[in-house]
Design a binder for these strands. Structure first.
Lengths: 120, 120
DNA sequence: TTAATTACTAACAAACAAGTAAGAAATGAG
DNA sequence: CTCATTTCTTACTTGTTTGTTAGTAATTAA
């Protein structure tokens, strides 16, 4: 749960208002969103497949991040009234504008892999 | 202090190995690094000025993030043997490769500002 | 009737990131 | 002698993110 008036939250809020990069990192950041967006960039996909494509992600995290991306309109959810349930996810048009960003970040990161060693 | 064997840390580690974007976000992510890099992109600058340019940042956070960027070779530190001390910071050549990324992220984020409303 | 399937939820705990506050060091100015 | 200056450091607290476990629904197949 987020505390609306913590210094922490206020600092975050102010950054969103003045800094586009803070907004971008809010959408793109976190441990799992990159992988989610990357895989959705390949096309519409079922929840279970997405989970299989992202090693180690827990259902809680996957759902949570998908919901957040959906809430902001970057991801669309398609539900089929079947049993067992079938739900597919896809990037919206707006979500697809993320793809070049994600590619640029990934390329830069890959170029750094051999130069730096991240801590354990 | 980071626990080397927490699932959390292991997940992070695995991502670094397989996903360039995770590396990039490790360098670029967090609340303050964007602003630090953005300001350093304008040129060499003193610690105190940098602090003044980044509203609300605490000394602890500024130092901590600068040290991390320095450790990975994206930022250089120039110390003048004076009293009171004078220390200047600048992006290294490697650090300058971040500039286009940072600009792309900022531009995308700015383009989203009116479309989405981030939570408090 | 019992188990298997699939997408999801809720309660809780561990790990991590960020914020607060106090102070150190070395010198020059008063 | 005391104070201001500037760049940091340390110990501590609060807040946020991530992980774990158990469980739901509604049908079909055995």
């Amino acid at each position: 749960m987020r505390k609306e008036n913590s210094t922490n939250a206020l600092n975050a809020q102010e950054l969103y208002e003045t800094c586009g990069m803070a907004i971008a990192l809010r959408i793109l950041g976190g441990r799992w969103k990159p992988g989610i967006i990357w895989n959705l960039a390949q096309g519409r996909i079922r929840y279970g497949q997405l989970k299989a494509l992202i090693p180690n992600i827990s259902e809680r995290m996957l759902i949570q991040q998908l919901k957040e991306l959906e809430k902001y309109g970057f991801v669309e959810r398609f539900v089929f009234p079947e049993v067992p349930p079938r739900v597919e996810y896809a990037l919206t048009e707006e979500g697809k504008t993320l793809i070049p960003i994600v590619q640029a970040l990934a390329a830069w990161g890959d170029s750094q892999r051999d130069k730096i060693k991240l801590p354990v």
